[in-house]
């Protein structure tokens, strides 16, 4: 989960933006209610999408309250139900294991922040893992597969992406309706594949400098972190094919009130984010910080 799946808010009417905000705040409230304040800090767009995908077609009752993020003016939020609880539990498990992964990936010093946050999240994780032992096991095992592939420097980007994609796909296991389970499983698999590959593309230059494992660099031999026109075209094509699989699956289920948000995200948001990543404009904030640091180094 890296924050690449996000709604193209500019293309959505106010009504839909408000609905997305209520889903976002709703997940935050569910996390708070089930796991306490610490768990609310794992909230992000990806988990909001997980909650939206797992939700029923109706938005259900909404509430309004102030919260630590909006202490003066209350915000309306979607009240939780069984699907929201499932999304919250899975989010906690995913967040915890990704933090543990961060601990394993870094040396003692740089792993400190991951270790610290994962310790704070530990009680919430234990509770979530108890509630969803199957999903906990799936995440643990898939991240194990991913870690092995990284150590082996697996040159197949499909194989590496598959380890992460299956981890998301398994999030649909507890859905009762068999057709809906298949549709969601397919959507989550390719969303996971798209996220993993987009993240690898976003890290191309960073990994070229540090020598970290990057399946996209290995696949296209991009040792300096720069795209060639041919490799960029091929890569965009493979991303597009995953989006096509997400879209064809999405069209086979009625997502009710969530349809406008999902449709805009699938048919527009993912393309926009992918293009921004390929153009290197996705994280101007991060790059501008790096530039500042460079200027500081140059001047001293």
């Amino acid at each position: 989960m890296y924050g690449y799946v996000r709604p193209p808010l500019g293309e959505l009417p106010q009504e839909e933006r408000d609905r997305f905000q209520r889903a976002y705040c709703g997940l935050c409230h569910t996390l708070g209610r089930r796991y306490g304040l610490a768990a609310r800090f794992i909230l992000n767009y990806d988990f909001t999408y997980l909650a939206i995908l797992l939700a029923e077609g109706e938005e259900g009752p909404t509430g309004e309250s102030r919260c630590p993020a909006s202490p003066i003016r209350g915000r309306s939020y979607r009240q939780g139900d069984g699907a929201a609880a499932l999304a919250a539990d899975e989010s906690v498990i995913l967040a915890y294991w990704q933090l543990r992964d961060g601990v394993a990936d870094h040396d003692w010093l740089h792993g400190l922040k991951y270790r610290g946050v994962s310790q704070i999240l530990e009680p919430a994780y234990r509770k979530a893992a108890q509630a969803r032992p199957g999903y906990d096991e799936a995440v643990r095992s898939q991240l194990g597969v991913l870690a092995r592939l990284e150590t082996e420097r697996c040159p197949s980007m499909d194989r590496a992406a598959d380890a992460f994609a299956v981890l998301l796909e398994r999030g649909a296991d507890e859905v009762d309706d068999p057709v809906r389970r298949r549709v969601l499983g397919q959507m989550l698999y390719h969303l996971g594949r798209w996220v993993y590959l987009t993240d690898a593309a976003d890290d191309l230059q960073k990994d070229a400098k540090t020598g970290n494992y990057n399946p996209v660099a290995l696949r296209f031999h991009l040792w300096d972190g720069q795209w060639t026109p041919e490799s960029r075209r091929e890569f965009a094509e493979t991303l597009d094919h995953s989006i096509r699989m997400i879209a064809t699956a999405y069209e086979l289920w009625d997502f009710g009130c969530w349809s406008p948000i999902l449709q805009a995200t699938i048919y527009s948001g993912l393309f926009q984010v992918g293009k921004a990543v390929l153009d290197g404009t996705f994280r101007p904030r991060v790059r501008s910080l790096e530039r500042n640091k460079q200027e500081l180094r140059d001047s001293t």
């Binding site: 808010l9 905000q21 965009a236 597009d240 926009q272 921004a276």
Partner: peptide, 28 residues
């Protein structure tokens, strides 16, 4: 339909509207 066919991304900045509790998507 396609990553290379989509227009600019004027909306990306807007997408951070609800980044409230943490770095939004940037947490990890």
């Amino acid at each position: 339909f396609g990553t290379e066919f989509c227009g600019g991304n004027p909306c990306l900045t807007l997408c951070c509207l609800y980044t409230l509790c943490n770095g939004g998507g940037y947490f990890f």
